[in-house]
Amino acid sequence: MEPFKNLINRDTVATTGRHLRRAWPRFDQKRFEAQAATGLENLEFKARAMQLADALEATLPDDFNAACETLEASLAPPLALDAQGEPMKLGEAQADSGIAGWALWAAGEFVARRGVRDAVHAQRGLACLHAVTQRFTAEFAIRAFIQRHPGLSLDTLGQWQNDPSAHVRRLVSEGSRPRLPWGLRLQALVADPSPTLPLLRALQDDPSSYVRRSVANHLNDIAKDHPDLVAAWVREHLVGAPDARSALLRHASRSLIKAGHAPTLAAWGLASGLQGQAALTLSAKRAAVGGEIGLRVQLQSSARQPQQLVVDYAVHHVRANGGSSPKVFKGWKLTLGASEARTLDKRHSLKPVTTRTLYPGTHRIEVLVNGVALAEAAFKLEA
Rank of each mutant, 00 (worst) to 15 (best):
A112L: 03
R113Q: 10
R114F: 02
R114Q: 08
G115W: 03
G115Q: 02
V116R: 14
V116E: 09
D118Y: 04
D118Q: 07
A119V: 14
A119M: 07
A119I: 15
V120E: 13
H121L: 05
A122K: 09
A122P: 02
Q123L: 11
Q123Y: 01
R124F: 00
R124H: 08
G125Q: 05
G125P: 01
G125R: 04
G125A: 05
L126V: 07
L126M: 15
A127V: 03
A127T: 07
A127Q: 13
A127E: 12
C128M: 09
C128S: 08
L129E: 02
L129Y: 05
L129P: 00
H130Q: 13
A131W: 15
V132F: 08
V132M: 03
V132K: 07
F136G: 02
T137P: 00
T137G: 11
T137Y: 05
A138N: 01
A138Y: 09
A138K: 03
E139W: 09
E139I: 09
F140G: 03
F140E: 05
A141T: 05
A141M: 05
I142W: 02
I142M: 11
I142P: 00
I142E: 07
R143M: 14
R143E: 12
A144V: 01
A144S: 12
F145K: 04
I146F: 15
Q147T: 11
Q147W: 10
Q147F: 10
Q147G: 01
Q147I: 13
R148D: 13
R148P: 01
G151M: 04
L152N: 01
L152H: 04
S153H: 07
S153C: 11
L154I: 13
L154G: 04
D155V: 09
D155A: 15
T156C: 12
L157H: 10
L157E: 06
L157S: 06
L157K: 04
L157M: 15
L157Y: 15
G158Q: 10
G158Y: 02
G158N: 13
Q159W: 07
Q159L: 14
Q161E: 13
D163R: 07
D163F: 10
D163H: 15
D163W: 05
P164D: 09
P164E: 09
P164F: 09
A166D: 15
H167V: 10
V168S: 10
V168E: 08
R169N: 08
R169F: 12
R169D: 08
R170Q: 06
R170A: 06
L171H: 05
L171I: 08
L171P: 00
V172C: 14
V172F: 08
V172Y: 04
V172T: 08
G175Q: 04
G175N: 09
S176F: 14
R177C: 10
R179K: 14
R179C: 12
L180N: 05
P181D: 14
W182P: 01
L184Y: 06
L186P: 00
L186F: 09
L186S: 06
Q187I: 10
Q187V: 12
A188I: 00
A188F: 00
